[in-house]
């Protein structure tokens, strides 16, 4: 009997929860705000679904109800991706050690 592919996806999901659990506990508390903004950015990988939805129309009719929702989702996710990564970068650039340690 073959195993349903859903079971494999479920395995990936459950194992990723555990990976997430251990990785996030190792994040230093002073970086919890960048952690939130970067998780925001990466969860916008949902844009891959939005792109598939946006491209679902045919070449004569690019816009149908389904693809319009796709395009809107693309814009929302893109705000998050660019905004999330850039604001994280901006924050992380501010974390500096004492000056004397640098020299």
């Amino acid at each position: 009997m073959e195993i349903d592919p859903l079971i494999f996806r479920l395995s990936i999901f459950i194992l990723s929860i555990f990976v997430g659990y251990y990785v996030v506990w190792s994040v230093t508390p002073s970086l919890h705000t960048p952690l939130m903004s970067v998780t925001n950015a990466i969860s916008s990988v949902i844009i891959v679904g939005a792109i598939i939805a946006g491209l679902s129309g045919n070449s004569e009719n690019v816009f149908n109800t389904s693809s319009i929702f796709g395009f809107l989702a693309i814009a929302l996710a893109a705000i998050n991706i660019f905004g999330g990564f850039l604001v994280t970068q901006r924050m992380l650039a501010m974390y500096k050690k004492k000056k004397k340690d640098k020299s």
Binding site: P5, R9, I12, F13, I14, S16, I17, V19, G20, Y21, V23, V24, W25, H32, L35, M36, T39, I42, S43, V45, I46, V48, G49, I52
Partner: peptide, 21 residues
């Protein structure tokens, strides 16, 4: 739904991250 590994892994990471916080 989309059978997309990147999205499943990310979702699990972000979900557990928020829960721990």
């Amino acid at each position: 739904t989309l059978e997309n590994t990147a999205l499943i892994i990310t979702g699990a990471l972000v979900g557990s991250s928020g829960a721990i916080l």
